[in-house]
Simulated assay, not measured.
Amino acid sequence: MRYFYQAVLFGILFVSLLSCTEKKEKKTSDDGRTLVEVSAIYEAENDRHLFKTETDTIPAGWTTFRFINQSPMVHFLFFDYLPKGKTSEDLLSEISPVFQESSYLLMEGKQDSAQEVFSKLPDWFGKVVFRGGAGFVSPGQTTETTLFMKPGSYVMECYIKTADGTFHWTKGMTRDLHVTSDTTEVQPPQSPSVVVTTTDDGLDIEGEISPGKHLVKVQFNEENPGMIARDVHIAKLGENDNPEDIKSWIDFNNAQGLVSTAEDPAPTTFIGGTHEMPKGNTAYFTVELEPGRYAWISEQPVSKATFKEFTVSSESEY
Rank of each mutant, 00 (worst) to 15 (best):
P265W: 00
A262K: 15
W249F: 13
E244Q: 14
G257L: 03
I271R: 09
L237W: 03
E288T: 13
K236E: 15
D241E: 05
G257D: 06
D251L: 10
F252L: 14
Q300H: 06
F285E: 11
G272L: 02
S298C: 06
E276T: 09
T269N: 13
I297P: 01
G292A: 03
T268M: 04
A229T: 02
S260P: 08
P267L: 05
K304A: 14
E288M: 11
A295W: 06
A266Y: 02
E244L: 12
T306C: 04
P301V: 04
N254E: 15
T261Q: 02
A266F: 07
Y284D: 09
E288P: 00
W296C: 03
K279D: 06
P278A: 11
T274P: 03
H233F: 13
S303I: 02
V232G: 05
E263S: 14
E263P: 03
G272F: 02
T268S: 15
V259L: 05
A295V: 04
D264V: 03
N281P: 00
A295M: 10
G280M: 13
A295T: 07
V232L: 12
T306G: 04
N240I: 07
W296E: 02
I297K: 01
G257K: 06
A229P: 08
I250G: 08
G272T: 08
E276D: 12
F285R: 13
G273C: 07
I297T: 05
G257P: 10
M277C: 12
S298T: 13
H233R: 02
I234K: 01
T306N: 04
T274M: 04
Y284Q: 10
K236V: 12
S303K: 08
S303D: 09
D251I: 09
K279N: 13
T269H: 12
A283V: 02
N253P: 00
I250V: 15
G280W: 13
N240G: 00
S298P: 11
E239H: 12
E299H: 09
D245L: 13
A255R: 13
N240E: 15
G257S: 07
L237M: 14
G272R: 08
I297N: 01
E239P: 08
P278Q: 03
N254I: 03
W296T: 07
A255E: 11
Y294H: 05
A305Q: 12
A229F: 04
A283L: 06
D251V: 09
I271S: 08
A262I: 04
P278F: 03
H233A: 11
I271G: 05
N253Q: 14
F285G: 13
I250Q: 09
V302I: 14
P291F: 00
D241A: 10
E244A: 13
V259Y: 00
D251W: 13
Y284E: 10
K247W: 00
W249C: 03
A283D: 03
